[in-house]
């Protein structure tokens, strides 16, 4: 009943305890500030994403984890009045450099969205879409790619006999795996997943998680999730974000078992969020 003023929020520096991969960093985010008009959404985020590992971004709603993800393949470019300071380097190349080719950049990053979003086309056409937009017309190449991508996304056996049917007739889980297949068809360097399981039932979620496990190693995966168990299960590194700030970033086990920041502690134990 008592109306007490909330304690002043103080921000410590980000705590890092990163688990290193064998292949070095894929992405290097340096001091990223992001403004939607006058409102700042990201505050000096710096993180290194290790090649071949799964990195999870967790945090309460509105903490900026999806925004950060969308910065990585410049999907935020379409948003009005958006301003970004800092840099993101993909294999040492600043993607926000003036001469950067956004289209080429996106081809190097596959993206999976919160809601399964297959195109209203056949399953086959959905998978090979990235190749189509690249102008690939060789049927053999397309078919081979389709099979490879569907196999990688553990969908091949379910749909191999109905590749020419509409993708919209699939179940939600299948659709999401199809979107993953589409994302990896172009053989991207990084796979970005924006809460890929939030619209799925537990069984479909389990399948996607299995898939992420399988894809880890082949691809650098960045996954945004609301589900802390999921982050704990699938990721190597976890970044905890809060109110646009990166609080703690490092080995998933450490984050979930012995977090170094009290705020992380509160969040992962369910005290807020």
């Amino acid at each position: 009943m008592n109306m007490q003023a909330p304690p002043p929020v103080t921000y410590d520096k980000t705590i890092y305890h990163l688990k290193r991969g064998s292949a070095g960093p894929a992405l290097d985010i340096e001091n990223l500030d992001l403004y939607y008009g006058p409102a700042q959404a990201l505050y000096g985020v710096s993180m290194v994403i290790e090649k071949g590992l799964v990195t999870a971004l967790i945090g309460p709603s509105g903490c900026g984890k999806s925004t950060l993800l969308r910065c990585i393949n410049r999907m935020n470019d379409l948003v009005d009045n958006l301003r970004i300071d800092g840099s993101i380097k993909l294999h040492g190349e600043n993607i926000y450099a003036k001469s950067a080719d956004v289209i080429a950049l996106r081809k190097r990053m596959g993206m999976v969205f919160q809601k399964p979003n297959p195109f209203p086309m056949s399953i086959f056409e959905n998978v090979v879409y990235p190749l189509r937009v690249d102008g690939v017309r060789d049927k053999a190449v397309l078919e081979e790619t389709c099979e490879r991508a569907l196999k990688s996304s553990a969908l091949w056996n379910e749909v191999k006999d109905r590749l020419d049917q509409s993708a919209l007739g699939m179940s939600g889980g299948q659709q999401q795996r199809l979107c993953i297949a589409r994302a990896i068809a172009a053989d991207p360097e990084v796979l970005l997943m924006d809460e890929p399981c939030s619209a799925l039932d537990p069984i479909a979620t389990a399948k996607i998680e299995e898939l992420i496990d399988e894809l880890a190693g082949q691809y650098t995966i960045v996954i945004v999730t609301h589900n802390m168990q999921q982050a704990a299960r699938v990721s190597d590194n976890t970044a905890f974000m809060y109110l646009g700030r990166l609080i703690e970033y490092g080995d998933t086990e450490v984050i979930f078992q012995t977090p170094r920041s009290p705020r992380t502690q509160d969040y992962v134990t369910g005290r807020f969020g």
Partner: peptide, 22 residues
């Protein structure tokens, strides 16, 4: 739906390709 546009752009399609193909 906006998510189709996002999906297409996310695949590295240009705006024109997105408009024409999706």
């Amino acid at each position: 739906p906006e998510h189709l546009r996002a999906a297409s752009l996310g695949c590295g399609a240009t705006q024109w390709q997105t408009a024409m193909r999706v």
